[in-house]
Design a protein around this nucleic acid. Structure first.
Lengths: 221, 221
DNA sequence: AGAATAATGTGAGATATCTCATATTTTGAA
DNA sequence: TTCAAAATATGAGATATCTCACATTATTCT
């Protein structure tokens, strides 16, 4: 992690003003940080003293289970808060956050202004809305995981993440996200090829039979 | 649903004071309602105009999927808010809430005081903490569902819900909660009996081999 | 460039879980 | 009390998904 200073710092603060999230002057507590790809923003089990607001980039929210298995809970995309739950409740981070790409965050050192934050209606309302939406999203994802086979969920995910008719995500990431084994993900991809829904090319999996894919995805809504 | 009046109303308002959730006088907007067992507090798709704070009772939070399957997202137990997300964001209820037992709620007609609520730091902070904790709980449950077989999850659930060494929940409810079919729940219960972890009696399933049960449950933590 | 590491790909066999059909028992309401 | 509905129970067969083992490519680092 690298603290940005001077012109870079000024640039980001200017481009992403968050003054209106707060009813007091937040600038004394603010830093601009840059995380490299793959860097951990929060480590599971560590003690929190910072809240972040991600303004550019993408990250993954993880939890590690006792048996060593890891669940990719969610992708986190700018703009969003991180560490807000830990600010509200005491305690360690129970989740890890790792960047997927270079990421720029505004950091708020909470030891300086925790009380101010927790009594600021403007800020709290922002957090409330954010938490509410996140909860809705996470709940939807998990109930779907439970009720639909991978065939449908993968179809929906391919629709979402494909670019110019090509699906080219990393299998290792996606199987974690969809909560299935690597092996099984490959099985279902192979099955899609078998059924001529996709075709494997050097550029990724090409979507051939878009209608059928949509049909499979739609069963979820 | 029944509005309570006079002495009953006064009784509950006195027993569960929520004045300190707000920095303004909430009483003009407050009612005390009673829902019978099995009644729906929110219907999926309906338009919200009320937020509730459940003070006695227990309910189930549901979502219905496109394919007709229903997920029991969570048990909701007093004390807790209901409809808070809909207060924050516009839109219909996307979840249904059905009581499990007779339930007493304080209702807050939001059309009268929405603005006041959404600018009240005291209230917003309560909601934030509540949402944060709920999110943590829901996430934990669902990631576990994904990673552990029913054997472990059921063991943990039996530990939680058993009373005086007896497990006697309704299978029809629990299979929904644990996200498995009725058939499979019965299989695993039978397996527990087979292994002399439980014994089926008229009073419910008796826990015989507590250590082994704990062992199975602990794999989750 | 070469070595180490990560990602991809595939087979075989196991198992966790589902669907459906059907019978019995319990519960709640008329 | 009786009847219908809900809950419990069980079998049989299907399938979605997992584990493990191993081979082959890409990527990254030195």
């Amino acid at each position: 992690m690298q603290l940005l200073t001077d012109s870079k710092r000024a640039h980001y603060l200017e481009q992403y003003p968050i003054d209106d999230f707060f009813s007091f002057d937040i600038h004394p507590y603010l830093e601009v940080c840059q995380f490299e790809k793959g860097e951990w923003i929060f480590q599971e089990g560590s003690y929190p003293d910072t809240m972040y607001y991600m303004i550019e980039g993408k990250a993954k929210l993880y939890v590690t289970h006792k048996n060593g298995k890891v669940s990719l809970i969610d992708y986190i995309e700018a703009p969003c808060f991180m560490g807000e739950i830990e600010l509200l409740n005491e305690g360690r981070y129970t989740k890890g956050i790792q960047t997927v790409s270079k990421t720029i965050c505004l950091s708020i050192a909470t030891n300086g202004c925790k009380e101010k934050l927790l009594t600021d209606a403007k800020f709290l309302r922002k957090i409330c809305v954010f938490l509410g939406q996140k909860q809705t999203a996470v709940t939807a994802k998990y109930t779907q995981n439970q009720v639909y086979p991978l065939e449908n969920r993968l179809a929906a995910f391919i629709q979402l993440s494909s670019d110019q008719g090509y699906y080219k995500e990393k299998h290792t990431e996606i199987c974690e996200y969809l909560g299935v084994s690597y092996r099984h993900l490959l099985y279902v991809l192979a099955q899609f090829c078998e059924e001529d829904i996709l075709a494997k090319t050097k550029k990724g999996y090409q979507i051939i039979h878009e209608k059928r894919l949509a049909q499979l995805a739609q069963e979820i809504q």
